[in-house]
């Protein structure tokens, strides 16, 4: 397989950030209340991820190793601010739906994780395709979760009512507990079908730092910032 296509396959299927690596759980749980919110969040994160991968890959020979994490954070935070201002200007309804989770893309483990694990070791085009693949995988996962929660909790699909008359939706699925519930059932299904994933590490080996989490393939004991 072409090595660029391989990156996309890797991001969407083999190392899907949500279903296999179990990264970036905060936005996954928080914004998947409706399919459209999941899609919006996924696309915003993808945009930041592609650009940050490109910038960090381009600067990989310039940034000194000792200060690389603060440097990455500045790059990512700048890109997130630009994205936030663009969404506020052109998609005000999405902006109010996602709220504080847009600036919080900065601390999304997927972005710093890919910078550490891939972008700072590979060429610009490969890093860009890695960003596209990972972002696509994240977007698909968020949209699926949002779709399930919206269907069960509000009886709608992308805002269109699909439930027959007289059937009440189960409101709890679009509330906070529904997020944990759907994720639990999702991982249970993955486990039941024997699909290899990092869910065990999700509940045992993370030590509280999203960005340098071991699941993001970055050594955790040596954080510099």
């Amino acid at each position: 397989m072409n090595k660029y296509l391989e990156r996309i396959y890797n991001g969407v299927v083999k190392e899907n950030p949500t279903f296999v690596l179990m990264l970036g759980m905060c936005p996954t749980l928080a914004v998947s209340t409706a399919a459209i919110n999941g899609l919006g969040m996924g696309i915003s994160t993808t945009a930041v991820l592609i650009l940050s991968n490109v910038v960090i890959s381009a600067l990989r020979k310039v940034i000194p190793d000792e200060v690389r994490l603060p440097a990455y954070i500045v790059v990512v935070a700048t890109l997130v601010t630009i994205t936030e201002l663009l969404i506020e200007a052109y998609l005000p309804s999405l902006y109010s739906a996602l709220g504080i989770y847009i600036p919080l893309i900065v601390v999304n483990c997927i972005i710093l994780g890919r910078a550490e694990a891939y972008a700072n070791k590979n060429s610009v085009p490969l890093a860009a395709f890695d960003g596209i693949g990972m972002g696509l995988g994240f977007t698909i996962a968020l949209t699926i979760l949002g779709f399930i929660r919206e269907l069960l909790g509000a009886g709608t699909v992308f805002g269109h009512n699909v439930l027959p008359q007289g059937v009440e939706p189960i409101g709890i699925f679009i509330n906070a507990p529904g997020a944990f519930l759907v994720l639990a059932i999702m991982i249970m299904v993955l486990n039941a079908f024997g699909i290899k994933n990092n869910s065990d590490k999700l509940v045992s080996s993370c030590d509280g730092c999203c960005a340098t989490c071991q699941r993001a393939a970055a050594g955790c004991g040596k954080e510099e910032n």
């Binding site: 709890i172 906070a176 944990f180 519930l181 639990a184 991982i187 249970m188 039941a192 869910s199 509940v203």
Partner: peptide, 22 residues
């Protein structure tokens, strides 16, 4: 049950706590 071991059962516990906190 095997498929529930690890993450799913922890998430279910979190879901129930979340309902209580509601």
């Amino acid at each position: 049950p095997r498929p529930l071991r690890g993450a799913p059962v922890v998430l279910l516990a979190a879901a129930l706590m979340s309902i209580a906190f509601m």
